[in-house]
């Protein structure tokens, strides 16, 4: 397991650095914007925008996890497809499904750890100007966006590992159709009731790249 993580780290570290910097920079920018807003308008108006209009103030961040997930998926699996290098992994003396799962676990862990400092920054900043309810609501608002990153990651991996173009197109369509639903509403709390379904769906999407890799192995 460590070895696969080591390989993935060496392979993708420059991309991970890029994604981390992008997350952090965007979070910082969002925080600065919040600071600016809090300076420009009186606090009651800013709170009112949250309480009555459901403003989260962090909408700048929304598409970043999606792109991060896409980029990481490509950074991890495109090199595995050049000359069908994935064969090297599948030939390693560990179970094939386990080997692919390790790759995906690395991606998941990366996406989580990349988002973590950004979330922490945004949470801490939110607590400076807002009560905890806002900060928690803000995190819940960010949750579908973060999930979209995982979804994009699983789907990009599945699409890349998939051999047949028809299946690839199908996967892309499904991914686009679903991920759009993660960006329907911006107001705080509106995703509360569907978040659990989205989490379940994203978790279930884990199986797609694994099945794609098994089809890859069988050469179909």
């Amino acid at each position: 397991m460590k070895a696969i993580f080591y390989k993935e780290w060496i392979k993708t570290r420059s991309y991970i650095a890029l994604i981390t910097v992008a997350h952090f920079a965007m979070a910082l920018y969002a925080v600065l914007k919040l600071r600016y807003i809090s300076g420009q308008y009186d606090a009651v108006s800013v709170w009112s925008a949250w309480i009555y209009k459901g403003y989260s103030f962090y909408s700048l961040y929304q598409y970043l996890p999606l792109f991060g997930g896409l980029l990481l998926g490509c950074a991890q699996f495109m090199p595995e497809l050049r000359d069908r290098r994935l064969r090297l992994v599948l030939h390693l003396p560990i179970g094939e499904r386990r080997a692919v799962t390790m790759h995906l676990a690395f991606g998941l862990a990366t996406l989580l750890s990349v988002a973590f400092p950004a979330l922490l920054l945004m949470y801490s900043a939110a607590r400076v100007w807002f009560p905890p309810e806002f900060a928690v609501g803000m995190l819940l608002t960010l949750a579908p966006w973060i999930l979209s990153g995982f979804g994009a990651y699983f789907f990009s991996a599945a699409v890349l590992l998939e051999g047949r173009w028809t299946r690839r197109i199908l996967l892309v369509l499904v991914a686009a159709g679903v991920l759009r639903l993660f960006f329907q509403e911006l107001s705080i709390g509106s995703y509360e009731r569907v978040l659990a379904y989205f989490i379940l769906w994203t978790a279930a999407a884990f199986c797609l790249p694994i099945m794609s890799s098994e089809r890859f192995r069988k050469g179909c």
């Binding site: 329907q184 509403e185 107001s187 709390g189 509106s190 995703y191 509360e192 009731r193 569907v194």
Partner: peptide
């Protein structure tokens, strides 16, 4: 539908 216009929450 996820948003049927009758709630401020998304639902199924």
């Amino acid at each position: 539908e996820f948003d049927n216009g009758k709630s401020g929450y998304l639902g199924i």
